Deep mutational scan, measured.
Amino acid sequence: MEQGTVKWFNAEKGSGFIERENGDDVFVHFSAIQGDGFKSLDEGQAVTFDVEEGQRGPQAANVQKA
């Protein structure tokens, strides 16, 4: 798993970007967020995640709040 920080997340659209510790920013969709309840992330929040190849390039998967 990688570690990173939420660069921004739009709760209305359900997507945003995570700033990786090593590498380019990666797209995140709300469906990749693990946990119960409303799936959203806050700017500056620390997260851990896997990276998968999506239709438009790398994207975060199995996102967990650190």
Rank of each mutant, 00 (worst) to 15 (best):
M1C: 13
M1W: 11
E2S: 11
E2N: 12
Q3K: 15
Q3C: 15
Q3I: 13
Q3L: 12
G4S: 00
G4W: 03
G4D: 00
G4Q: 01
G4H: 01
G4R: 00
G4C: 07
G4L: 00
G4V: 01
T5M: 10
T5D: 02
T5E: 04
T5N: 08
V6D: 05
V6N: 04
V6Q: 01
V6H: 02
V6F: 01
V6C: 07
V6G: 03
V6P: 03
K7A: 04
K7D: 03
K7L: 06
K7M: 02
K7P: 03
K7F: 02
K7N: 03
W8R: 05
W8F: 09
W8K: 06
W8L: 04
W8P: 05
W8H: 06
W8Q: 06
W8I: 04
F9Q: 05
F9I: 02
F9T: 03
F9C: 07
F9G: 02
F9Y: 08
F9S: 04
N10V: 03
N10R: 00
N10S: 10
N10D: 13
N10P: 03
A11G: 08
A11V: 12
A11I: 11
E12L: 14
E12N: 12
E12D: 11
E12C: 15
K13D: 07
K13N: 09
K13A: 10
K13W: 10
K13V: 10
K13G: 06
K13P: 03
K13I: 12
G14N: 02
G14S: 02
G14P: 02
G14A: 01
G14E: 04
S15N: 11
S15W: 15
S15R: 10
S15L: 15
G16L: 01
G16Q: 00
G16H: 01
G16N: 00
F17I: 09
F17R: 04
F17T: 04
F17D: 03
I18N: 03
I18S: 01
I18G: 00
I18Y: 00
E19N: 09
E19R: 15
E19V: 14
E19C: 14
R20P: 04
R20E: 01
R20M: 08
R20F: 06
E21V: 12
E21P: 12
E21R: 09
E21F: 09
N22K: 09
N22D: 10
N22G: 11
N22A: 08
G23M: 08
G23Y: 05
G23S: 06
G23A: 09
G23C: 08
D24G: 13
D24K: 13
D24L: 12
D24F: 11
D25V: 12
D25P: 08
D25W: 14
D25E: 09
V26F: 05
V26K: 00
F27N: 03
F27Q: 05
F27C: 05
F27H: 05
V28R: 00
V28F: 11
V28H: 01
V28L: 07
V28W: 01
H29S: 05
H29A: 01
H29R: 00
H29F: 07
H29N: 03
H29L: 06
H29E: 04
H29D: 05
H29M: 04
F30Y: 11
F30L: 05
F30Q: 05
F30A: 07
F30P: 02
F30T: 04
S31I: 04
S31T: 12
S31R: 09
A32Q: 08
A32I: 00
A32D: 08
A32P: 01
A32V: 06
A32W: 02
A32H: 06
I33N: 01
I33W: 01
I33A: 03
I33C: 06
Q34L: 13
Q34E: 10
Q34S: 10
Q34K: 12
Q34H: 10
Q34T: 11
Q34A: 11
G35W: 10
G35T: 10
G35V: 09
G35I: 09
G37S: 07
G37Q: 05
G37D: 06
G37L: 06
G37I: 06
G37Y: 06
G37R: 00
F38E: 07
F38M: 07
F38G: 07
F38H: 08
K39G: 05
K39Y: 05
K39F: 07
K39R: 12
K39E: 06
S40L: 07
S40N: 07
S40K: 09
S40M: 09
S40W: 14
S40D: 05
L41C: 05
L41E: 02
L41K: 01
L41Q: 00
L41T: 03
L41R: 00
D42Q: 15
D42V: 15
D42H: 15
D42F: 15
D42M: 15
D42A: 14
D42C: 15
E43P: 15
E43V: 15
E43F: 12
E43I: 15
E43L: 13
E43R: 15
E43D: 10
G44L: 02
G44H: 06
G44D: 04
G44Y: 05
G44E: 02
G44S: 05
Q45A: 09
Q45E: 14
Q45V: 09
Q45K: 02
Q45I: 08
A46E: 10
A46C: 14
A46Q: 12
A46T: 11
A46V: 13
A46M: 13
V47K: 00
V47R: 00
V47T: 03
V47Y: 00
V47A: 04
T48W: 14
T48M: 11
T48S: 09
T48I: 12
F49L: 04
F49M: 03
F49K: 00
F49H: 03
F49A: 02
F49D: 02
D50W: 14
D50G: 07
D50I: 14
V51Y: 05
V51E: 04
V51M: 09
E52I: 15
E52A: 10
E52P: 00
E52S: 09
E52C: 15
E52Q: 11
E52F: 14
E53A: 10
E53K: 10
E53R: 09
G54C: 11
G54Y: 05
G54F: 05
G54D: 07
Q55N: 12
Q55Y: 13
Q55L: 14
R56P: 07
R56V: 07
R56E: 08
R56D: 08
R56M: 11
G57R: 04
G57N: 06
G57D: 03
G57C: 08
P58V: 09
Q59L: 07
Q59S: 07
Q59E: 08
Q59M: 09
Q59D: 02
A60K: 01
A60Y: 00
A60C: 03
A60T: 05
A60V: 02
A60P: 00
A61S: 10
A61I: 14
A61W: 03
A61C: 11
A61V: 14
A61D: 04
A61L: 10
N62V: 02
N62R: 08
N62Y: 05
V63Y: 00
V63C: 04
V63F: 00
V63K: 00
Q64N: 12
Q64Y: 10
Q64E: 09
K65D: 08
K65C: 10
K65T: 11
A66P: 08
A66W: 11
A66N: 12
